[in-house]
Nucleic acid binder design. Structure first.
Length: 471
RNA sequence: GGCGGGGUAGCCAAGUGGUAAGGUCGCGGUCUGCAAAACCGCUAUUCGCGGGUUCGAUUCCCGCCCCCGCCUCCA
């Protein structure tokens, strides 16, 4: 089955055909964080979705070039730097650093480029694009000295969001300077300097000021990818106005189709409510780590629901993630033992299939893909219970897992080393068991458990595994 | 008001015009000295509600209800 994605632009599932199929190269642009505070887990849901997308494309043999922008100048960063009374670059640096820390914890692959809006290279590019838009009559400088995009001159404006612009209603959420603009929907390309900006600003043909938010993405995607990109991702809330504006700006300059496939991720909810910085009901990654959850547990919890469906974050869901991963762990341990045992009963016919990746081909149907994974786990466990899984089959399953895990990236990283204390207790317990001193054996099991290790007695003696979440 | 996305077991969730994957939780069983893990069995006669089409609908059509979101700088 060929790759299919739901394209927000057409609102249909479409077969994926990259711009340059022969090269197997794909360009992806993803909207990154605005670094005015620590990103919350809702942000990371979107980034994990993009990570899953990239990894699956790579599994399918594509070479992905992905760009993620960092918005490091806007109203909120300026407010932040003013309140903190430190320079903008210093203010945003701390959140950039936190962001990279967090994506590493969540095992999100780094983009190839993380362009920053304040980089002079991109400021220049933005100015260049704005000038082109003005020369084409698509933009104008208003009385307030800011430059705006003239949406009436761009007939496709509203096509992505499927908005009828005459129906636009102000929510009052954002204050805008309606008197300076020709149309209420005209959006800023260049914002004229005002007092609140302090020493933040760049010179331009239209005077000192700073870029509007949308133009940075148009400039960076054009500069780093090309006039036309294969896939552009973001949260659904970015569809309007942000992505709509990007289309208008980029196509207004190049005259070419900007993006082939628009993929948008639904929101993460907390207790059924949208999670957002402005509402203050958000968790950051450190908040969850403090509760004892690991990066991979959080990764699983954020990944397991289809990207176009809302994901309701709950602690019950975190617990579920933990248990599901523990199940995978156990399975891998057994498989590796089976692969090493070199028994050859040769009767097992359970073979890994390709259903996992085929599910992902279908608009990243992760639930179906995980369904196949867990079915496979049950089947192979059943076979191993009967001691019927031969070594070569076990190896085949392990190879399959490696492939699957390239996409999921859910395996425990390092073996947690037994402390000398636990090792000694285990040894004592072994002796106690040899003497069938069950009382002492159970006491020791409790003590080992208190130290974070679970004890299991198997045919091959006792086995210790670190309790989930502790490692 | 306009435009989206959802509503499937306690919770999360896949799915199809032919009678409901998977995860998690709970209960019972096998195994065990007891556990744990694993496996087996049970847990939705039913897929928000009401109509319609059909031999048959959770799946298609119509109407309605509920939740979440977007409607000018939120992923």
């Amino acid at each position: 089955m060929a790759l299919h994605f739901f394209n927000s632009y057409s609102r249909e599932i479409e077969e994926f055909q990259p711009r340059d199929p022969a090269q197997r190269k794909i360009s992806i642009y993803t909207c990154g964080p605005t670094v005015y505070s620590r990103a919350h887990i809702g942000n990371f849901r979107a980034y994990i979705f993009e990570d899953l997308l990239q990894r699956h494309l790579e599994l399918r043999g594509y070479k992905v070039h992905r760009v993620m922008n960092i918005t490091d100048v806007d109203d909120k960063t300026i407010r932040g730097t003013r309140e903190a009374k430190i320079p903008l670059s210093k203010f945003t640096a701390q959140f950039k650093e936190a962001f990279f820390e967090d994506i590493e914890t969540l095992r999100i692959k780094r983009a190839d480029d993380f362009p920053a809006a304040t980089d002079q290279r991109y400021i220049d590019k933005m100015i260049e694009m704005i000038a082109a838009l003005i020369s084409r009559g698509l933009a104008y400088q208003a009385d307030d000295k800011s430059v705006y995009f003239r949406i009436n001159k761009f007939p496709d404006y509203g096509k992505l969001a499927h908005f009828d612009l005459t129906q636009l209603q102000s929510t009052g959420r954002v204050k805008h300077d309606e008197y300076d603009k020709e149309h209420i929907g005209d959006f800023a390309l260049w914002k004229a300097w005002d007092e609140e900006d302090g020493d933040i600003g760049w010179e331009s043909p239209w005077g000192r000021g700073r870029p509007g938010w949308h133009i940075e993405c148009s400039a960076m995607s054009t500069a780093l990818l090309s006039d036309q990109i294969d896939i552009h991702c973001g949260g659904v809330d970015n569809i309007f106005p942000h992505h709509e504006a990007e289309i208008a700006q980029s196509e207004g300059v190049t005259g070419k189709k900007f993006v082939r496939y628009w993929l948008h991720c639904a929101h993460l909810l907390v207790d059924g409510q949208k999670m957002s910085k402005s509402l203050g009901n958000f968790y950051t990654l450190p908040n969850l780590l403090e509760k004892g959850y690991t990066g991979r547990e959080i990764r699983y919890a954020l990944m397991r629901v289809h990207y176009r469906a809302p994901l309701n974050f709950t602690w019950e869901g975190m617990e579920e993630a933990r248990q599901a991963l523990a199940r995978i762990n156990e399975w891998l341990v057994r498989l590796r033992e089976a692969a090493a045992k070199n028994i050859d009963k040769g009767k097992n016919k359970t073979q890994p299939g390709s259903l996992f990746e085929e599910a992902l081909d279908d608009d990243l149907n992760i639930s179906a893909a995980l369904g196949f994974l867990f079915e496979s786990i049950r089947e192979t466990n059943r076979t191993m219970d009967r001691n019927k899984l031969d070594a070569s089959s076990a190896r085949a399953w392990l190879n399959w897992w490696e492939r699957v895990n390239n996409v999921l990236d859910l395996e425990t990283e390092n073996e947690v080393v037994l402390s000398a204390e636990v090792a000694q207790l285990a040894k004592d317990r072994e002796n106690a068991r040899r003497e069938k001193n069950w009382k002492q054996s159970d006491e020791l099991r409790d003590r080992i458990s208190a130290l974070g290790w679970e004890v299991r007695d198997t045919n091959d003696g006792q086995k210790l595994t670190p309790r989930m979440g502790s490692g």
